[in-house]
Structure formats: C-alpha cells, structure tokens
Design a protein around this nucleic acid. Structure first.
Length: 244
DNA sequence: ACATTAAATTCGA
DNA sequence: TCGAATTTAATGT
C-alpha cells in the first residue's frame, strides 16, 4: 500500500556506483591502461572471484600470500593488530581498491587482517600472473608506482591529522580518505554505523556522533540510520585546513 | 550510562 | 500473507 504525500516523495540516497563483476573491475582499473587487449584477456582468464560475507576474512594476517586482491563491491577494512593489545588501526578498502602488492613483491606472509564490513566480492589475481606483469609490462609498473605513492601520501596525511588536529577534523579526514573513490558520485550512501566511525577515527562512539552532527551542520554529510550520506567529499577532504 | 527510536523478527489469525 | 507484538540494533544526549 503506497501513500502519496501530496507529491512529496521522500528522497532515497543514491547508492555508490560499484563494479558489476570481475571483468568490469579489471577493465576500469588503472593498471589495464596501456596493456594490450590480448594481455588483459590472458590476465582475466587467470583470475577468479570470491564472495566474502559480512565479518568474513578477505585475507588473514600470517597467511601465505597467493594473490593480488581487488575489491569489486562491498566494503572491507584492513586492520593491523598490535602484538599484545587489541588496539588496531584501520584503513578502508572501497570498491576499486587493489592491495597486497607489498607482501607479493617481498613474498612474505600477509601482515594485515582484511575483514569484510558488509557482503563483499573480491577479485583474485594469482601471484605468478602478478609477477609476470611486473616483469613484462612497463605500464603495469608505472601503475604500481602510482599506487604506492598514493598510499604513502594517505598514510602521511593520516598521521598528520591524528597528531595535530581535533576530533572533528580526524573524523572528517577518516571519512574522506576511507571512502573517497572516483567511482562514487555524490550524494552517496555509506552503510557505516557510528560505532564503526568511532573505531576508524579512534574516538568513542559518542564523540563520533557529535563530530558527525557537526559535519552535518556544515552540509558535508547527512546522518541517517545505520549510515550516512556523503554530500560533499571535497569539503570533507579539506575540512580543517583552510589556509594553503 | 540511559532513554528513545528505527528496523528486523516472530507470531497469530 | 498481513499486521500487530516483541526483540534487537542504532542513535541522541
């Protein structure tokens, strides 16, 4: 039974754009730029896809690394657990993220837990194919350099915001770095509850709530039940550092 | 920590 | 299969 509220339709937030399947992800990823179509097809043929339910492991710390991993849809978090404590720092992996190349290059065991925050589909590229691309493709190597550089910048930025900015700024910064993907067009909904935001930004849930409301005041986001809508990603990114 | 509200699930017809 | 009742999860203060 649907009701008509005088033509006023409650607006549904747009869902984030997400990759359709493995092939869609690969074809749209930066590293296929400059690769021969035949090479891409060969690589595609070697890859497979895996579904990970909420709370499931995408990758486990200590496990041998067999694949380079890309996120097709859903959302995962990478967490580093300290040897003794349960204190873990978190990094988000939205669709389009590729990770694990560090351990692949050094051929060591995984150093992070990667856990699905919601039902997630991942793409797996076997280590041998990854190696083969590194050995034979300059464009692929250029992409890896770009990726590593980006990640370094992300870490530096994170460290900076943790050290010399207030809580609201940290929360804004975390949201921006974790969920900034060129695929996402504002406004888009993020299914992340306030407790998780707190974990990501290293603040209590209560404080995260205050920070989110503040960001809502500024029309950068809209707070909803069980998540939030990003209205202005650029604003989130620059929040807390006006002067150049 | 507590009160409130949204959503999900169960239950009875 | 519908909707009211109950339980669970998330929010706001």
């Amino acid at each position: 039974m649907d009701k008509n509220f005088g033509g006023v339709i409650p607006e549904k937030p747009a869902l984030p754009a997400v990759f359709r399947d493995l092939e869609d992800l690969v074809l749209q990823s930066g590293w296929t730029k400059g690769l021969e179509r035949s090479v891409v097809d060969h690589v595609l043929g070697s890859m497979h896809e895996r579904y990970v339910p909420t709370g499931g492991f995408v990758a486990q710390s200590g496990a041998p690394v067999q694949d380079w991993i890309g996120v097709i849809s859903g959302l995962a978090k990478m967490s580093v657990t300290t040897s003794d404590g349960r204190l873990s720092t978190l990094i988000g992996a939205p669709p389009g993220t590729w990770f694990g190349e560090g351990s692949l290059i050094k051929s060591e065991a995984r150093r992070y837990d990667v856990v699905a925050l919601r039902p997630t589909r991942i793409a797996l590229m076997p280590a041998r194919i990854f190696e083969w691309l590194r050995e034979t493709s300059i464009p692929f190597n250029h992409y890896l350099q770009h990726l590593l550089n980006e990640r370094l910048a992300q870490f530096v930025g994170l460290l900076k915001s943790q050290r010399l900015q207030g809580t609201d700024e940290r929360v804004a910064h975390c949201l921006a770095t974790l969920f900034d993907s060129p695929l996402f067009q504002e406004p888009y909904f993020l299914e992340v509850n306030q407790e998780e935001v707190g974990l990501l930004a290293n603040v209590s849930r209560q404080r995260a709530n205050l920070a989110l409301k503040r960001l809502e005041e500024l029309s950068l986001i809209r707070v909803e039940f069980g998540g939030l809508v990003v209205l202005d990603m650029a604003g989130l990114k620059s929040f807390g550092r006006e002067p150049s």
